[in-house]
Amino acid sequence: MALYLLVLGVCLLVIGCVFLALMSVGTPRYRTEANDLIALFDKALESQVSETEWNTIIGYPIRHDEYLENTRRRAMHLMDTHGRRWQLAQGKSLLNQEGHAELTVLRDHLAAHTALRESQQR
């Protein structure tokens, strides 16, 4: 009987510790920033991005910054309009020439907007 109570007590202690640990840990959150999008656009322009990486970042909504969310949506629209997913496996560009030009403009605009925002915060 004593062994039963000892095992029960240890099990309850372990379960309680695990429960407390799970309750005290917050939910992990990924927060896409402007530099993340710029780095992704640079990799896409250099044909070094995978479709999975593109979809992971572009497919995740950005709720903390409306400008970044609009940029993300424009990039998603670019992929829908000018994307060449089937040629990515052959080592070719993710976008056609027109999409490549539009992504360059979008990347430069985002970089200028980010630089302006950083200079205003100082």
Rank of each mutant, 00 (worst) to 15 (best):
V49H: 05
L68P: 00
F41G: 06
C17V: 12
T52K: 05
P61R: 03
L20F: 13
G26F: 11
K43W: 02
V10S: 14
L78M: 07
V105D: 09
R85I: 09
L13A: 13
L20K: 08
L12M: 11
D42G: 03
R85V: 02
A111G: 04
L8Q: 05
T104H: 01
L95V: 02
T52V: 13
L95R: 00
I57R: 10
G9F: 12
V14W: 02
L95A: 01
A2M: 14
V49Y: 02
A101R: 15
N35P: 07
H64Q: 11
L40T: 02
T52C: 10
L13M: 09
C11G: 12
N70S: 15
L5A: 15
E118T: 08
L37Q: 02
R31A: 14
T32Q: 08
T52L: 14
R72F: 09
R85P: 10
E33N: 11
A39M: 03
A112T: 05
E51W: 02
Y30K: 05
R73M: 13
I15P: 00
S50D: 03
V14E: 06
V25N: 13
D36Q: 03
S119H: 15
T71D: 08
Q90S: 13
V7K: 04
G26P: 07
A2G: 12
Y67W: 06
I15F: 14
G91R: 09
H100N: 10
V14Q: 01
E33V: 05
L106Y: 01
A111H: 02
L68W: 04
L22D: 07
I57C: 07
E98S: 05
